[in-house]
Design a protein around this nucleic acid. Structure first.
Lengths: 110, 110
DNA sequence: ATAATAGGTGACCATTTGGTCACCTGTCAA
DNA sequence: TTGACAGGTGACCAAATGGTCACCTATTAT
């Protein structure tokens, strides 16, 4: 019943610079392996990156697929959309609201 | 130059159930005092609530105004809008993108 | 003036979190 | 089949976080 709780995992996963950077990397190039992703974070070891990846995965923000001896990572935008829908857009009304209003007016005049 | 850093404070502030509930409370009724806000969280002391409020305030998610011996709290949606603009909406494309495209097409045909 | 009310501060504690490392498993190429 | 390569696990540690408490200041009502 509590739909706030599954969002909580997502919010917590997003509350880290490195993890957001990982999502950004996957948004730029989907299907990267652990070792390739590591190259983007020379300041931290493979293990650190792997921990962040597992946090993202348990929050369903990424999905994975093993290919031979490498593991490929794919971004899953659904939880972010849920955050936007069920939370953010209630507060960020000025942007969305005006666009929605525009859409309505266009539809009505059509 | 790093605009990720100021967003980081906001992301971290939002990564807590209690703090999001506080924002929700202020969204419902603006200008609440500390003690009134505390009534919504019987499971925690005034000090816990105050700490959360200060986190929200340093993230500019709320503003305050002293009135006599009580301190009133107001929601400031700007940082949430920035999170939406500069981050969320890049991933939550299906919703926003179609609206933005619509806006562009309307503007062009005008 | 005095007492009740509303809020603030710093120390303190338990838990969580970010990160590393030693070591292990599975896969591919020679 | 032997080694190099890609990834995984559990223990471990330091720092950050969530929360409480003793005590303090400022404001208001009597």
């Amino acid at each position: 019943m509590e739909r706030t709780d599954d969002l909580d995992v997502v919010f917590k996963a997003l509350a880290d610079n490195t993890r957001r950077a990982l999502l950004d990397a996957l948004a730029a190039t989907d299907g990267l392996s652990v070792s390739v992703l590591c190259e983007e974070f020379p300041e931290m070891t493979r293990f650190g990156v792997m921990k962040h990846l597992s946090v993202l995965e348990t929050a369903s923000l990424i999905t994975t697929h093993r290919q031979g001896r490498s593991k490929l990572h794919y971004l899953n935008p659904v939880p972010i959309q849920q955050v936007a829908d069920r939370w953010i857009n209630k507060y960020a009304q000025p942007i969305t609201r005006s666009l929605v209003d525009l859409k309505k007016s266009v539809e009505q005049s059509a």
